[in-house]
């Protein structure tokens, strides 16, 4: 694998991007890799831009923040506008399909119906974060983190009664990338 992956997950406070990042970091550690997860948010409990970051590496991680994102997830226009500059020149952008992306952005862009899929297929936008985890996982690939380890990490971190729904949401996210 590549020596290190820098992932940045952003959205509106309450959308669950911090939990999504924790699940990815947890799985990376269970895989035997190093991972550091951080977040930044405002004093408000809901709303406002929320950003969470994960660095996954086979080596020791000193600086805990993303310098150049290999994958940037933006679930809202606000978070896209705020964080798009963090994308590495070879980085991949995942946005919810309502987000308007600059036409001259040179990066590979996945424009996915994350929020609508959550609502249409699962009846709640609350699983949008786990659909996003599925999409990010699909882009990282099985050779970085084993799928069973991902499933275990989700199972351990979401409320017990929602496990089934969240695992289906995870698979939906994979499908959005792989078709």
């Amino acid at each position: 694998m590549k020596k290190n992956f820098e992932l940045q997950l952003s959205g509106s406070g309450g959308q669950g991007v911090i939990l999504a990042a924790i699940i990815l970091a947890d799985a990376a550690i269970a895989q035997g890799l190093n991972a550091v997860q951080t977040q930044s948010y405002g004093p408000e409990a809901r709303g406002g831009a929320s950003k969470s970051e994960v660095i996954i590496s086979s080596e020791e991680i000193y600086f805990p923040k993303v310098r150049k994102a290999d994958i940037l997830l933006a679930l809202t226009q606000n978070s896209y506008d705020k964080y798009v500059d963090f994308l590495d020149e070879n980085g991949i952008l995942i946005v919810d399909d309502h987000v308007k992306v600059d036409e001259d952005l040179p990066n590979k862009v996945y424009n996915l119906p994350i929020l609508n899929s959550a609502f249409d297929k699962f009846g709640t936008r609350m699983v949008a974060n786990i659909i996003s985890v599925g999409a990010i996982y699909a882009l990282l690939g099985e050779n970085v983190i084993d799928k069973n380890i991902m499933l275990r990490s989700i199972t351990e971190r979401v409320p017990p009664v929602t496990v089934e729904k969240n695992i289906a949401a995870f698979n939906e996210g994979i499908k959005l990338i792989r078709g």
């Binding site: 970091a25 550690i29 190093n34 991972a35 550091v36 997860q37 951080t38 991680i61 805990p64």
Partner: peptide
């Protein structure tokens, strides 16, 4: 805050 809120192994 960096160390308090950071998650790692």
């Amino acid at each position: 805050e960096t160390v308090g809120h950071m998650r790692e192994k």
